[in-house]
């Protein structure tokens, strides 16, 4: 655990908090892609299946407890988000702007996970699948944004926190590479792709939102 890792995780947590705040305050899910939220839920469940393994033989360190608590928060908040979008605020969701075909993303990530993994076991392939899927899970949301051409400021804060958390993970990996000889190519490449997908968004966010303007695509 280092300062980059903890900051990234807290930023990730903050992004979820902002999303829930946006939905509760505006009582609307307008501008939020259900498909992206669904993909994140799949990511968390596929990656954190180890929650259901026996913890009896594990050495119980503080970081283990930290991970368990965070995993439960990520899974439950993403399921709760789906509930808000599908049930509570369903009337404010516009499926006509959320038309990205996620079947292709799911199939591509599953294929890549079956081909490129560290070990060919169910748990490992699912973990790898979740890493690949997380890298591209934001695409339906960015596609929706490009279709509508503008976004509420609070939604852009959510997207910024969500994108930037992975960018800070890049620093964490550089740090760990130097301090612990830590190497994880699957996570590194996926994390770099994930961060790169946000580059246009980051640029417009910096140019407009941070200068007090509304987020509008040029």
């Amino acid at each position: 655990m280092n300062v980059f890792r903890i900051s990234a995780d807290l930023l990730h947590l903050l992004s979820i908090f902002i999303l829930l705040l946006k939905m509760q305050k505006t009582r609307s899910v307008a501008g939020i892609s259900f498909k992206t939220q669904l993909l994140y839920t799949i990511v968390f469940i596929a990656r954190y299946l180890d929650l259901f393994e026996s913890h009896a033989e594990k050495s119980f360190e503080l970081v283990t407890l930290y991970n368990i608590v965070m995993k439960i928060i990520f899974i439950s908040s993403s399921v709760y988000t789906l509930y808000l979008m599908k049930k509570k605020f369903r009337a404010t969701y516009d499926p006509n702007t959320d038309t990205f075909r996620i079947e292709y993303l799911l199939a591509l990530c599953l294929f890549l996970a079956l081909m490129f993994n560290y070990r060919f076991t169910v748990m490992e392939v699912l973990w790898t699948f979740s890493i690949y899927l997380e890298a591209v899970a934001i695409l339906p949301q960015l596609f929706m944004l490009s279709r509508t051409g503008e976004a509420e400021t609070i939604t852009t804060h959510y997207l910024f926190a969500l994108g930037f958390y992975r960018a800070i993970y890049l620093l964490n990996w550089i740090w760990r590479f130097h301090m612990e000889d830590y190497v994880d190519w699957i996570v590194w490449i996926s994390g770099a792709v994930q961060t790169a997908l946000y580059s246009d968004f980051f640029y417009i966010y910096y140019k407009k939102v941070l200068h007090g303007e509304k987020f509008v695509l040029p």
């Binding site: 990656r47 594990k58 490992e124 973990w127």
Partner: peptide, 10 residues
């Protein structure tokens, strides 16, 4: 080792 031990990040 279990997956959770090997992958120590979130």
């Amino acid at each position: 080792t279990s997956t959770g031990d090997k992958h120590d990040e979130l």
